[in-house]
Simulated scan of single mutants.
Amino acid sequence: MTAQIIDGKAFAATVREKVASHVTRLKEENGITPGLAVVLVGEDPASQVYVRSKGKMTVEVGMSSFEHKLDADVSEAELFALIDKLNADPAVHGILCQFPVPDHLDERAIVARIDPAKDVDGLSVTNAGRLAAGQAALISCTPLGSLMLLRDRLGSLSGLNAVVVGRSNLVGKPMAQLLLGDSCTVTIAHSRTKDLPDVVRRADIVVAAVGRPEMVRGEWIKEGATVIDVGINRIDAPERGEGKTRLVGDVHFQSAAAVAGAITPVPGGVGPMTIACLLANTITACCRANGLEEPEGLTV
């Protein structure tokens, strides 16, 4: 068997088209322009790239983009004052602080300071609790994007066995909650799970989010299973020349693709869905703030 490649880049483009269409309707019918504010602290090169990309795509779908760049030595009080200002700004419907931040700042405290109704990263304890309780929440973007890809590939997920390899607050736990919400039988596994290959081998759906390069091997995969690889790891690639690197996921792609029914590549799989779902969450937050119907297909 050769797995179908799940094209996250193409699907993310479709999500952004839906977002842009709904933004146009909000402007024309309600006079509202959704706004996304991004806060960047310091000069981390990767963070600067991510923020530029988010800002560009925000503008492309017709939203307002507010970027706030702060010095690396900014005090917690100054950062919190900015977040409080954004919380109170009716033109801002989504707020995120780009992580990592300098060591003197507490990421958990930053997330807690953001109004949960504007927490488009879905990281707050409030949104995590709402998701676990089956209530309306803003959902962490990577799990939300993964669920969209699974629904597009499989249709109904009801009754399927799903294994999530990884237990992080960012991906593993919310992914498990989303799969439960779609009536899967869910196992959360991790690096210390006994007989991990056997646990994974029973799954119709495997979501790998453990942060270890190519940890999940093809012999772990049930024939015909759908594999969502959330991992993004940079490893040495001497075959490309001295000092060269390449990106790989948490799944050994070649061996898994020979067994699975469908699989996401790295790059080009889950990654593009993350920013697309950030934009989708901003639309959702905007509609909820204004008592409007939420866009179909952009939330759960």
Rank of each mutant, 00 (worst) to 15 (best):
V207K: 02
N30W: 15
D121S: 08
R167E: 06
V186T: 14
A225N: 11
L160Q: 10
I275N: 08
S146N: 12
G159A: 08
L279I: 12
L180R: 08
V59N: 00
V51N: 14
L105R: 12
A280K: 13
G241A: 12
V171P: 03
G8V: 09
L247T: 12
R288E: 00
G218M: 04
G291V: 01
P265M: 04
D115S: 03
H190Y: 15
V171S: 05
D106Y: 06
V171L: 05
A91W: 04
Q254H: 06
V171C: 04
M175F: 05
I275F: 05
Q177L: 15
N169A: 15
I228P: 10
A208N: 03
N87C: 01
A276K: 09
G241Q: 15
A10C: 06
E294R: 15
K244T: 06
Q98I: 14
T24Y: 06
V227Y: 01
D236Y: 07
I235Y: 08
T284Y: 00
L105P: 03
P45C: 15
G231M: 14
V259N: 05
A258D: 14
D198Q: 13
T226E: 08
L144H: 06
V227R: 00
L26W: 02
K194S: 12
V125P: 11
A20L: 07
V259Q: 10
P238H: 14
E28N: 10
S124L: 09
V266I: 10
I110F: 08
D121H: 05
T274S: 12
V199D: 01
H22L: 10
L298C: 06
A117G: 14
I114N: 08
L82E: 01
R246E: 05
S64R: 08
A208K: 02
D204Y: 03
V230C: 11
D44W: 11
S158P: 11
G155Q: 14
E214R: 02
K54D: 07
D198I: 06
D71M: 03
A237C: 03
H104S: 05
G172D: 12
D115K: 00
N87F: 02
R234A: 09
G271N: 11
T193Y: 08
V51S: 12
S156T: 15
P34D: 05
I139D: 14
S64F: 10
K85E: 11
A117N: 02
I5R: 09
L70E: 03
E29I: 10
S183Y: 14
R113F: 01
M175I: 09
C287I: 00
A128Y: 05
E28Q: 08
